[in-house]
Each structure stands twice: as C-alpha cells, then as structure tokens.
Computed example of a mutant assay.
Amino acid sequence: MVARSWNETQGAAFADQIDPIERLRRLRRLAGIARVMDTAIRIPGTGIRFGADSIMGLVPLVGDAGGAMVGLYIVNEARRLGIPPSKLAQMVGNIALDGVVGSVPMVGDLFDVFFKSHRRNLQIILDHFGVHPDELHQRR
C-alpha cells in the first residue's frame, strides 16, 4: 500500500479533472445539506431561520456531535473538489466553534440559531469557485 499525502498541486490537478457539470451537481447537494442544517425553518413574522443543527443541538452532546459530523462531510467534499488547505482549516474552525459553543446548555442552543457554520462553509466553497448562490438554482 502506498501512502499519499495531499498537497495543493495534487488537489488542484484533481479538481481540474472534475467535470463542470459534476462540480455543479456536488455544489447543489452541499447547498441542500447546508440549507437543511441551518435555514430550513423560518419563524413566521420574523427573519429568523434555523434548521436541523439547532434542533439536534437540543440533545446534549450527541446532537452537537451529529451536527459536527455533517459539517465534516461538507469539509471532506470541499477537499475532494480541490479547496486549498487554508480554506479547509477555516471551515474546520467554523465547525469547531459551532460544536464547542453549541454544547453549552441554553447559550449554545441560542448560538446555534444565529451562527450558521454550514452556510458559512458553503459560502467559502462558492467563493473559491466564483459561483453565486443563485447559480445553484438555475436549470440547464
């Protein structure tokens, strides 16, 4: 078995091999996951939106760990798409902050409603590829 370490040139070369249509399909899937986790439900009469991450966070430790696992899936997909390590580190930092602060009783539940780590990470990915969020909803 040959051990390979990831470096920026290998990641960029792999990312260039991904068909633009396949990349868009992956970005749409990640956008859907981020939406479900962070903004799927709107409180009527307010601009406040929350998602499964906030609801799962109500279950002590297990809920926040589950939200972090979903976040790590998004980071892994970003890595596979060729996002550079510095941006991946920023994405992991968003997940860590959400997981650590989110695990504090009561305060963490409120924090989860307003700090949307999955949406932030999706935006990092979209900015890297120069994709506007509206482009994810257009049909070809």
Rank of each mutant, 00 (worst) to 15 (best):
H137Y: 06
D38V: 00
A13H: 11
I48L: 15
L88E: 13
A78K: 02
G102K: 13
R26T: 12
E22Q: 12
V131K: 01
I41G: 01
I43D: 02
T46F: 09
V36W: 04
P105T: 11
N7R: 08
A40F: 06
A89S: 14
F114P: 11
W6Y: 14
T9N: 12
L24T: 06
M1R: 10
V2A: 15
D134Q: 11
F115E: 04
R29W: 03
D112C: 10
R29M: 09
L88Y: 05
R29P: 02
V107K: 11
I33R: 03
D134A: 10
E77K: 14
Q123S: 13
R25T: 08
Q90H: 09
V36F: 12
G108Q: 05
I124M: 11
S54E: 07
R119C: 01
E22I: 10
H132A: 14
K116F: 04
S54C: 13
G93C: 06
Q17S: 15
F129N: 06
G93W: 02
K87A: 15
R28L: 03
R28V: 01
D64R: 11
A31P: 03
A15G: 15
G99K: 08
S103F: 08
R119Q: 14
R49P: 03
G71I: 05
R140H: 07
R140S: 06
L24Q: 12
D53E: 07
R4S: 13
Q17Y: 03
Q17T: 08
V104M: 14
R80G: 13
R42G: 09
L110F: 14
H118R: 04
S54T: 15
K116L: 09
M56R: 06
D127N: 15
G71A: 09
A31D: 12
P133D: 00
G93L: 14
G51M: 06
S5W: 11
W6K: 07
V131T: 11
R80Y: 06
E77N: 10
G108C: 10
P84M: 13
V36S: 04
D38P: 02
R29N: 03
M91F: 09
R140I: 00
V100H: 01
R120Y: 11
A65K: 00
L122I: 01
M91D: 09
E8F: 00
H118Q: 12
I95T: 14
G130Y: 05
G63D: 08
G11W: 01
F14P: 03
E8K: 14
R23T: 00
I43F: 10
I18E: 04
E22W: 01
R23G: 03
L72H: 09
R29T: 05
A13F: 09
L126W: 06
R119P: 00
L88D: 07
V62G: 02
R80W: 05
G99E: 05
D19H: 10
